[in-house]
């Protein structure tokens, strides 16, 4: 009797997995990326001669932060695949 309920619950929770994983991951990564680029603008306006050096660090920071979004997304996808 409970089997269909569990089945539906499994489907819903798999969808929730992607939603929460991707959504919360995007929140965190969005804040982080905004912070990095904000700081880069601040740093470059203060010391324009450091621009080249800051640019390479900026992309490093961007990619490291962006990866956090994908950790969330991969966790969500795993919950979907393993449902």
């Amino acid at each position: 009797m409970l089997a269909p309920i569990f089945h539906i619950a499994a489907g819903v929770s798999a969808g929730l997995g992607i939603g929460i994983g991707g959504g919360l991951g995007a929140v965190g990564a969005g804040i982080g990326i905004g912070f990095i680029f904000g700081k880069v603008i601040e740093a470059v306006t203060r010391q324009p001669e450091m621009r080249d050096e800051i640019t390479s660090i900026q992309w490093l920071g961007f990619a490291l932060t962006e990866a956090c979004f994908f950790y969330g997304l991969v966790a969500g996808l795993l919950s979907w695949v393993l449902k």
Binding site: A63, L64, E66, A67, F70, Y71, L73, V74
Partner: peptide, 13 residues
């Protein structure tokens, strides 16, 4: 793990 997942997940996603 982070080296692997960063590259793979970025490209896959």
């Amino acid at each position: 793990i982070s080296l692997t997942v960063r590259l793979f997940a970025n490209i896959l996603a």
